[in-house]
Design a protein around this nucleic acid. Structure first.
Lengths: 258, 258
DNA sequence: CCCTCTTTGCGTATGGCCTACGCAAATTAG
DNA sequence: CTAATTTGCGTAGGCCATACGCAAAGAGGG
């Protein structure tokens, strides 16, 4: 049993003798999440969390072996239950719903995606999400390995999107001008049409001429579009598989290999 | 002109009087990159970089206003020229080539994707890559805004993939057992078929029964597959646009809105 | 040649961070 | 009541970024 599982499933044996603990690992985790929600992951230090709990810094190390372990606990405790899938919905509606659910998690805990991913999912909440997403693909032509592949691709994309947004939001907060009209103006100055003709064409078409390039609704719309492109690809792949099977010319996928 | 541009394009005015500088911002950046390549981004401290250059820590602050600024400089200096596109190739081959080129950058500088993205691309190298990727889409039915959207989607995905891999590699280094057979075994113990049936089915199908789940060639293959799914989606979108245009029933895209 | 002004090099110091260690206080088993 | 065990936590060490101030080095004007 890998260490992560024991930690995240609370399988560490409780002591029977000695002074009673005044806290639990869950208390520490909850306090750390409260700090992260209020002031960002950067504000989560052992000292800050201890102050939140009215304890001394070093007391926390009785419940958590290291700060890394605390972060691991946060990565499971911050998740809510995944949304329920309506009965009879198709796979695509289900995945879209779950992807939006991940965005909701991010909205509540923007620091979530700054946590390093140290391995395959191990905590109960993470596995529950994993299961829920996989369940949308059960009745599709994808085999088990492909289902995992599609889910991993989805997670990579959504994760990447949320991280990018977190970082852009931070960049916007401490330097809004680099998202404003000055951006397009600078490009017009610096981009030589001979060296970067494609970019120059984009600039001249006015794609960057907005008061701000950091606009939440726009980002949401872009997210939906990109997700749809990916899901279109998945749908096309399923269609190929179904066709192969009905023609039954024998086994091999026609999935393009490169 | 936003501050980032002045910094990254070397547009700060050189002093005419006074003691001669013994270094340049480029020297500092290069040394920092050498440290990051050899020992990871975590080893890049002002003191460590200064030692690399045979200078004192505080001397660096004459060339770089803060560590953040140094990281920004690194984010442009670490890039090579993007690969040349063969003449006459189609958009898809071009994008695939460039995506692999990004993976090559990551192989040389795995820390690259740990740098925070503080805003839209500003440095000359970053803009050159941006231009090169955009150039693959010039002769497609996508309008300028859509071209940028597709490129951003691609960058998000590739970035997300590389980050995930960096973190998994780190996790693998300091805890390989959580990627081994113990993982599947733990899931068999902990995953209740009633609560997580889809995941249980995957586990029972043996999807996790390998000596290690962290396998570089496998990850490469998965990357290619997921990229292809996304590009399939883009191709389908282009096909819809082309059809709309040839039928000329008037303007509006049939791109599904949710 | 010298004086002044500018710029660099860098020692010192402050305030953060994680955490190893050791001891006192609390609690339980026998 | 005693011994064993476990918690609470003070102290301290070793990292980190960086503000500040002063000495050294070089350039321009006289």
């Amino acid at each position: 049993m890998p260490a992560d599982f024991a930690l995240l499933w609370g399988l560490r044996d409780a002591p029977r003798r000695g002074r009673r603990p005044t806290l639990t690992a869950a208390d520490v985790t909850k306090a750390a999440i409260a700090v992260a929600d209020a002031e960002g992951l950067g504000a989560v230090s052992m000292a800050r969390v201890a102050a939140e709990l009215g304890n001394s810094t070093m007391a926390l190390y009785r419940y958590v072996r290291s700060k890394d372990e605390l972060l691991t606990l946060m990565s499971d405790a911050a998740l809510d239950d995944p949304p329920e899938l309506p009965a009879g919905g198709d796979w695509r509606a289900g995945i879209t719903l779950l992807a939006r659910g991940m965005l909701d998690v991010w909205n509540r805990h923007p620091w979530y995606v700054q946590l390093p991913v140290s391995g395959p999912p191990a905590g109960p909440r993470n596995l529950q999400w994993f299961d829920r997403i996989l369940s949308t693909l059960t009745d599709t032509p994808l085999d088990e390995g492909e289902q995992v592949g599609v889910v991993m691709g989805l997670l990579t994309f959504v994760h990447g999107e949320m991280r990018l947004r977190s970082e852009l939001a931070a960049g916007y907060r401490n330097n809004p001008e680099s998202f404003g009209r000055a951006y397009g103006a600078a490009l017009r100055h610096l981009v030589d049409p001979r060296e970067m003709p494609a970019l120059r064409r984009i600039v001249d078409a006015g794609v960057f001429d907005y008061d701000t390039l950091y606009d939440e609704p726009d980002l949401d719309a872009d997210f939906t579009k990109t997700l749809d492109l990916y899901l279109d690809g998945v749908a096309a792949h399923m269609a190929r598989l179904a066709q192969d099977r009905s023609q039954s010319t024998g086994g091999d996928s026609r999935y393009p290999s490169v």
